[in-house]
Nucleic acid binder design. Structure first.
Lengths: 141, 141
DNA sequence: CTGACTGCAAACGTTTTGCACGGTA
DNA sequence: TACCGTGCAAAACGTTTGCAGTCAG
């Protein structure tokens, strides 16, 4: 119980910090993404349907757009078809298991890469790194 | 003129090497992607409309699917909305200029990254790296 | 000659838009 | 109360599919 309240409070804090209106739908969206990690729009829709049977997909897209603008969410592009989102946190790479489909966060140092690219005259503001392969779990089997 | 013939011949060689049927549409698609570098499906469609006014978008999607299967093309996911493709070549990173939109190929050594990720128990088969920022051209202005 | 490729049209899934209503600040 | 957020419906995209005619091998 306490946990649920904590999550709700955390979501409200995120919204207030960005001067956004606090609505149940927005709290729920943050909560779902926070729980699921890397979640696609239709997964979000299905999950939120449980709590808000009358919710519209349009609402979800609108909230996502606002959250992307305000840098609350980050879009991850592991597959061409489906967009996925995660709460913005420390920069990290993603490992996509091509067997079970699970996505893991990898905290790697990209200092070496940045050094290489700066020496070529580029000054990147952002970086996205995706790895593909079988994860330790799937390798064991 | 000689150049055009060379391009055409190169495209035919690619198709024959993969035991695919050689059609004018496929040759043109390879040529366009080869010329444009990183091109989106609708750009391909518009360009090919010039040469083949009656071409169907479905044909382009079908050819792209086959080429992806045969590893002639590589899909690049720099934006969520539009899919882009490039001819497959040496592994490399992409730099996307957030000002002019130009995409550059960067040949970097990712040995250091791979070492880090292997030490965590992962064995990636593939890797995609995207950088975002202003390119040297746009910085100068 | 035969199977594969193309073009067409329709279907499909996802995302966007406009409007009226309802809720937050 | 005033404005912003939501839900609904329709439209706009991008992509996929099935079919019939055509072409490359």
């Amino acid at each position: 119980m306490m946990k649920t309240i904590d999550h709700k409070k955390a979501a409200m804090d995120i919204l207030r910090a960005k001067a956004l209106k606090v609505t149940p739908q927005r709290i729920a969206l943050i909560t779902e993404i926070s729980n699921a990690g890397h979640i696609s729009t239709d997964q979000i829709y299905k999950k939120m349907k449980n709590e808000f049977p009358s919710i519209s997909a349009a609402t979800i897209y609108k909230i996502i757009d606002i959250f992307l603008d305000k840098h609350i969410l980050k879009e991850i592009r592991i597959t061409a078809g489906k967009r996925r989102y995660e709460l913005k946190k420390e920069p990290h790479a993603h490992y996509v298991c091509t067997i079970c489909g699970q996505i893991s966060d990898l905290y790697l140092s990209s200092e070496d890469l940045l050094r290489q690219i700066r020496s070529k005259g580029y000054s990147p503001a952002g970086c996205e790194i995706y790895f593909y392969g079988s994860c330790p779990n799937c390798c064991d089997k």
